[in-house]
Structure formats: C-alpha cells, structure tokens
Nucleic acid binder design. Structure first.
Lengths: 344, 344
DNA sequence: TTCTGGCACTCGGGAGACCCGAGTGCCAAG
DNA sequence: CTTGGCACTCGGGTCTCCCGAGTGCCAGAA
C-alpha cells in the first residue's frame, strides 16, 4: 500500500481509455456491460469489472454511488491525457477554414478578436486569448511629435506591431531641435531593446542635455516609462461563454463561479501564466489553483511570431471534455496565429 | 370592448404598483391577502381581488395558473415605469463612491472599463457601455510622421480624446517638405470637422499637389479615410454576466440566449442604438427587437461630455427588475461619466 | 493463474398517489 | 361599492413503490 505504485497492465489502460471516451460522449456513468458492447475488448463484462475495481482502487475512476457506472477522476483524466490520448490533428478542411478566417484580420486587435471567436467555435467551449505581452517584445521605434508649443505626442512602436501613444504636457515650450535631438538619442539607446529594460538604459539621459532642457526631457521620459509599465499589463479577450450552458445537470452551481472567474482578468491571466513556455499545458479539475474552476479543465499553449512564445491562448471547459479534439484545435489555432503574426 | 380604454382609478393603480413592488422583491406571484398585509391599502382582500380581476382584464397582470397569485405582464411593467415609478436617486454615499471610483481612471479606455464594472456592481445586473462613437466627434489634429523613407505614420486625434494611428506604406520615398505641406493642408481643412464629413472635404486635395506627389497623397488619404470608417464601428464593453446566475428557476432556458446575445456586439449595438437621444429609455420584455432578450429589460441612456450625448450605456436584467433603483443608478453613472469626460 | 458465467444484492430515480394550502371567483349581506 | 363567507382549483411537496442497471463475489473452466 504505502507508496507502492502498481503497474497497470495494458488491458486496464485500455479500459480506462474506453471509460473516458464513453463518459465524454454520453456524460453518463459507464458500466461494464456497455463498455464491452461498444469497444471490442475481447473479454467479458466480468473481467472488465475486475479491472474497474483495480482502477478504482488506484483512484483513476470513481463510482457516484453503489450500483452505478464509473466516471473518471481528475487523476484518471490526467493519466488519459498523459499516456493514452493522441492529440487529434485538424482535418484539412478545418485547417483551411482556420487559415481563411484568420487571414481576414486587418490589425492586431482584429487577429486576437478573430482568434478567440474561432477557438470558441471550434471547441464549443470558452476560449481565452491573451494579447501579445509587451514585456517580451522590443522597441522598434519611438517617435516624438510637437502638437503645440508645450504639447508633445509620444508614440511607441514595438516589434509585435503594437502602437501606443501618449500626450505629454511639457513644463515649457519645446523647440524642434531639442525634440529631434531627444528623439535621436532615445532611439539610439532604446531601439531593439526589450521593453522592461528600457528604463534602465535611459537613466542618465537627462544629464546629457542642458540644464534648461532637463525638465522637459524628464517629463517625456516619465511618460514613456509609464507607457511601458502600463502596457505590460497584459490584456485578455474571451468568447464562448454561452457554451457554458451546455454544461449539464448541476448547472447553476457550476456556472456561477466560472462566470465570476471569467470576469476577473487577474484570474485569467494567472491561469494562462501557468502555461509552460513550450508545449501544451493541460490543467485538470483541482489542478487549477482557482477553486471556482475546480470542475473545469484548462488547455493552454503559448504562441508567437517566431520560435519564441509571446503570449498564451487556451480553452476552458468541463473536466469531462474531449481532450484530443480540444488539444488539436488549440494547437492548430496557436500555430496559425503565429504564422499570421510572423507575416505581418 | 372594442377599442374602449377604461380609465383605471387610483386604487387600481396603487394595487398594480404594489404588485410590481412585491413581485420584484419576492419573485413569487403575489396574492390578494399578502398585498393588503404588506401595504396598507385600507381595503379588504376581496376588494383587491376585484381590482386584480379588472387589471387582468386589461392585460396588466396575469395568472400563471388558476389558484396562484398574479404577476405583472410587460404591459403592467410599462405602465409602472411610465406612470407609477419615480427614479430613485442615489444616496450621497453612493454618489461619492461612484465619483471616487471613476476619478481613478487614467485614460479613456480605463474610464469605460471602470464604468461598466461599476454599473454592474451597483445594479447587480449586466452592464453595457458603448464607447464614445467617433461619428459625432470632430478632428482635433492629424499628424504625419516619417518613420522610414517610404513609411509614414498617420495619427488621428479627436476632440473626445481618442487617438488612432496607422502605418502607411507609400509608393515612393516621401520628402519632409511634402509631408509638412500635406500635414498643413490636411489640418487646415479637417480640423474641427466631424469625422464622417472629412472625406468629402478632402476630395480634391490630391489635385493641389504636383503630379509626382499625387500617388503618395492619395495613399495617405485612403488610409485616413479607412481609419475614419473603421473607427466609427462602435465598440462595446460589458460586465456582470455572473449576475445572470441569479435569474432564478427557469434558468438554463433563459440564460443561454442572453449569453449569446451578449456575445454578439452587433446585437448590443443595435440595442443601445435604439436608445432615445434625450432621456432614459426602458425597453421591457418583448419590446426588445432581439428575441433572445424577450424576458429581459434594457435600461439605457446616452452620455457625453457636453449637452450632446456621444454614446450610450445601460443595463440588461430580468423584466422583473427594480426599475426605480436601476434607472437611478444608470442615470447617476451616465451623469458622472459625462463630467469626467468633460474635464479631460 | 486468469477469465467467465451465474447470482444475489444495492440503490438511484422515475411513476403514481396523495394531500395541503394558497389563492381564486362568486354571492349575498352590510 | 365593499366585505366576509364559502366552495373550488390545482401546483407542487412528500411518500411509497418498483424497475433495472450495475455491482461484487464465487465457483468452475481454460
């Protein structure tokens, strides 16, 4: 008993796989008879019952009540996902549809909006897409534009195609030469650098200017830093909440905390933040830190324009979900979004 | 019978008011006995029953089944809202809380985000805020910035504080003098004008430039027009979907279409679009065009920085809602948002 | 050993039967 | 016009009963 991990033989694994598949399909506890009927396991129900007893002993499946069929536990799903399931690739028409749908996007926000809707539609679950985070992206260009004597517009362009702008109220009038000088120096130091590192690189910049100009320079820099900080607050878009209504019987109890979680961007961000940098992450039931999501699973993956993943996307659904299909859809969508980003 | 509109006497109206109030409070059909107990109408239950029969005859209330209490119909709520309800003003502490919460906003998007969450919290329903529409706002400034020989950044600033930018790939290198010239002419014609009118005003602009420069000018203008058009696509933010779970018994049937409606920005936009320009609009039950919202009411109002309303906000909840309170909250929030916008 | 058929047992949940009580409509008297 | 009285209705909670899917165990077969 203590610490002893028994090896499950192949047939027991096959039984577990069958249980998961049937349960996901029917949403009803599955019994030994039904199993042998629907999968040709080559053994009798009695044998399956013995295997089931063993699986239950090990905590992979569970009986709602005596004289009912079995349903997989979180641990059972975990084993299924880790060992028994093949990610189901999208069919060619599906891939074409994804491609086509995403190709219509006009700008970054539109890509994200389309992605999230697409994912919700494909998986028939709740889809979440985190925007490309600025913290990993780099400065492509900083532009300064005089709008009025003491008003300057600051524009930050990143390599991910994001453009952010701010109006700066300067302490005094700003000459065009000063502006040009500042712009040149800013870009010389910041261009190509990662956003979070920029403030450090610009620290002694004011010292290079004449004393009279320093307040202006400092003001502009302060606004720039603010923009950098604010924008690395990551944003989230979601879709498919209506799919929650298909959850089933214990409905109101389940949906309430989920909806609440979905409204808390912080929760969602943390959820996606736990995604491994490489490969797909599947968090099943109680593996999710947030307890409102204890009966849901989260399938998430990083995506990005190059090899590097700059942001995450994923799907939230009941633990009783079609893992192979969902994982296939998530992976495919992430891949195509990456391609789109790389092209633009 | 035919076409004859009977005048309801004061007591019948009082009975209707009491029915609405009680039903909103208890969510249960209200009977004659309970009514006289909770409101001192000065008459006996039997009398109330007669009045109820009359009200039912006129279609203001309705009996789920014989031997049950009455519940208001859409028509009943309509009469209640039009004639019987006073908008309930927010209390001083509430007003202070609203003010305080909104004052923390850092930019326009933040104002909208805070507003929608605040409204959801105050009303405990689903809140919807439409962004200040660009179609009514005017051009404050158009800026052109050369980023690379053939790359120009176009920035549009509106009087509502919105800033939109686009990168323009020009057919050839763009000189600084051309850019300055174009910028000056653009602003001379467009500044202060309403966005939808701008394209018309700039029509013959290319003709004023030398033939060699015209392709560039046209390209820039095309992008500008595109930005104007795209951005008058109005955007929407919503919050409080978790409040839908408090809807009650016939739950899954009700919530599904509502969630679907909420995901369709088009539906929401149309919904808010039906808001009257002045004053508050209340659409009750089947008065809503979209049939998924047949058992919900929408309370909406325009808001804006000046007298003019530039956008709409509102609340979606069950027909059985607290109209005076909801209307009070919606009005108060709209007013404060307007003030915030006016200040910035 | 491992599998299989047989068998007694369990128990969730659906189908009826039943009853309570809130609420009604109507009527006759005040 | 209002009121108290009264017979009637019927939704929905409770209780019981029963069915059948599913189980665990055991003894015999492979």
């Amino acid at each position: 008993m203590a610490g002893e991990v028994r090896q499950l033989d192949d047939r027991k694994l096959a039984v577990l796989r069958a249980i998961v598949q049937d349960y996901v399909g029917t949403e009803e506890p599955v019994g030994s008879k039904a199993l042998v009927d629907r999968h040709n396991l080559g053994v009798s129900p009695a044998t399956v019952r013995n295997d089931m007893a063993a699986l239950e002993e090990e905590g992979y499946i569970h009986q709602p009540h005596t004289s009912a069929g079995r349903i997989p536990t979180d641990k059972g799903y975990r084993l299924f996902v880790d060992k028994l399931a093949e990610v189901k690739p999208m069919s060619a028409p599906e891939r074409r549809a994804i491609r086509h749908f995403l190709d219509g996007a006009v700008d970054l926000d539109d890509v994200v909006a389309r992605t999230v809707r697409l994912l919700a539609q494909l998986t028939r679950q709740v889809a979440v897409v985190q925007y490309p985070s600025l913290s990993r992206s780099t400065v492509r260009h900083v532009e300064l534009v005089a709008l009025a004597p003491a008003k300057v517009m600051l524009v930050l362009i990143t390599n991910t195609g994001r453009v952010e702008q701010r109006l700066v109220d300067c302490p005094g009038a700003v000459g065009e030469t000063l502006l040009a000088d500042l712009r040149a120096r800013l870009n010389a130091r910041a261009a190509g650098q990662r956003l979070p590192e920029v403030p450090g690189l610009l620290e002694e910049l004011p010292a290079l200017f004449e004393a009279a100009d320093r307040p202006t320079v400092s003001t502009v820099l302060a606004t720039l830093f603010e923009t950098l900080a604010e924008q690395s607050e990551e944003r989230i878009m979601l879709a498919g909440t209506a799919n929650l209504t298909r959850l089933g019987h214990d409905f109101p109890l389940t949906i309430q905390p989920v909806l609440e979680a979905l409204e808390e961007q912080v929760v969602l961000l943390r959820l996606l933040g736990e995604t491994a940098d490489a490969g797909m992450t599947v968090r099943i039931g109680r593996e999710n830190a947030y307890e409102g999501l204890n009966s849901t699973s989260v399938v998430s993956v990083g995506y990005g324009s190059g090899d590097e993943s700059v942001a995450k996307l994923g799907v939230i659904g009941p633990t009783r979900m079609d893992y192979p299909g969902t994982m296939g859809a998530v992976r495919a969508v992430a891949r195509y979004v990456g391609q789109i980003l790389a092209e633009s």
